[in-house]
């Protein structure tokens, strides 16, 4: 009994010792030298691993920053300027301040504005629907409403409104990572300047059909009438392919175009309600001045 016991202890101890030596040698031989700065920078990152910066994740971003020792073209949309300042301080290189952005859904084709012409019976995926046909309305540029953007968003910031079947962005949650922009097969979602006090003006339509066709498909479509283009005092609006676009770098949010648009396709959001429209809560009615998000 005694010998068995001693024997067992000896064998196990020797075995453990041998393996420890092997492990030690292997660890020594295959040790990867890494700049400790990478870990430091990674720690300052938001850790969402959303890929909004264009890299595979926060670690990849940190590695790229340390490797190139420059922040040119590198920006974390989730962390914004605050995080980038920390990174810039750690790295000791200059950073470029960027205005905060937000995802904007440019489609006004709510169920009320845009009648369904067919019944889609396939999988609930915008992408599958888009490869199949133009969509279940007469507008083949508009939102398909299956919520690929919602599925792509890992911050829960964009949700399809079950009543309008148009996604709505939660500005507080949106990090402008761009996942929804990539997911949307119709290219409706755009990252736009958040604007002073989150106030901004944009054309909520992507329809490039001629005015008559667009209007027939959706009562709130941009018909390319160029009224806004003529009205804009800053030259921020251009009409191409029967569709107006507001350049947010030039737009001074004067809202002259909003009043001018005959279909209410131009939206102005987060402006204080006009005295006439007393209730503070935004209504779902598709009027031009009504805040949409």
């Amino acid at each position: 009994m005694g010998t068995t016991f001693i024997f067992t202890v000896v064998v196990l101890s020797v075995l453990g010792l041998l393996l420890a030596v092997v492990l030690f040698l292997v660890a020594k031989k295959f040790r990867v030298e890494e700049d400790p700065l990478i870990d430091e920078i990674e720690a300052t990152m938001p850790g969402a691993n959303c890929g909004g910066c264009g890299f595979a994740g926060c670690r990849a971003f940190a590695e790229a920053c340390v490797k190139s020792r420059s922040l040119d073209g590198k920006f974390c949309p989730v962390g914004g300027n605050a995080v980038m300042q920390k990174v810039s301080a750690k790295l000791g290189v200059a950073m470029e301040e960027k205005a905060p952005m937000v995802a904007v859904v440019r489609c006004n084709g709510t169920c009320a504005n845009r009648a369904r012409t067919t019944q889609y019976d396939g999988s609930s995926s915008c992408r599958i629907m888009n490869t199949l046909y133009g969509g279940d309305t007469a507008c083949r540029y508009g939102c398909l409403g299956c919520g690929d953007c919602e599925k792509a968003c890992q911050f829960g910031a964009i949700k399809v409104n079950p009543e309008t079947l148009i996604p709505e962005v939660d500005e507080d949650r949106c990090t402008a990572c761009g996942a929804c922009v990539k997911a949307c097969p119709k290219g409706i979602i755009e990252l736009r300047n958040k604007g002073p006090k989150n106030r901004r003006v944009y054309v909520s339509c992507m329809n490039q059909d001629k005015g008559g066709i667009a209007r027939k498909a959706c009562t709130a479509a941009c018909i390319g009438c160029r009224k806004c283009e003529k009205t804009c005092p800053f030259g921020a609006i251009t009409v191409e392919n029967n569709l107006a676009y507001i350049d947010f770098n030039k737009c001074k949010i004067c809202r002259k175009c909003v009043a001018e648009c005959p279909t209410g396709a131009i939206h102005a959001v987060n402006f204080p309600p006009k005295p006439a429209a007393a209730p503070a809560a935004p209504t779902a009615a598709p009027a031009a001045e009504t805040p949409k998000e």
Binding site: G122, S123, S125, R127, I128, T131
Partner: peptide, 12 residues
């Protein structure tokens, strides 16, 4: 299950 719907997009 709409198997082919998703297989088709995956294949593409």
């Amino acid at each position: 299950i709409p198997l082919l719907d998703y297989i088709r997009t995956g294949k593409a």
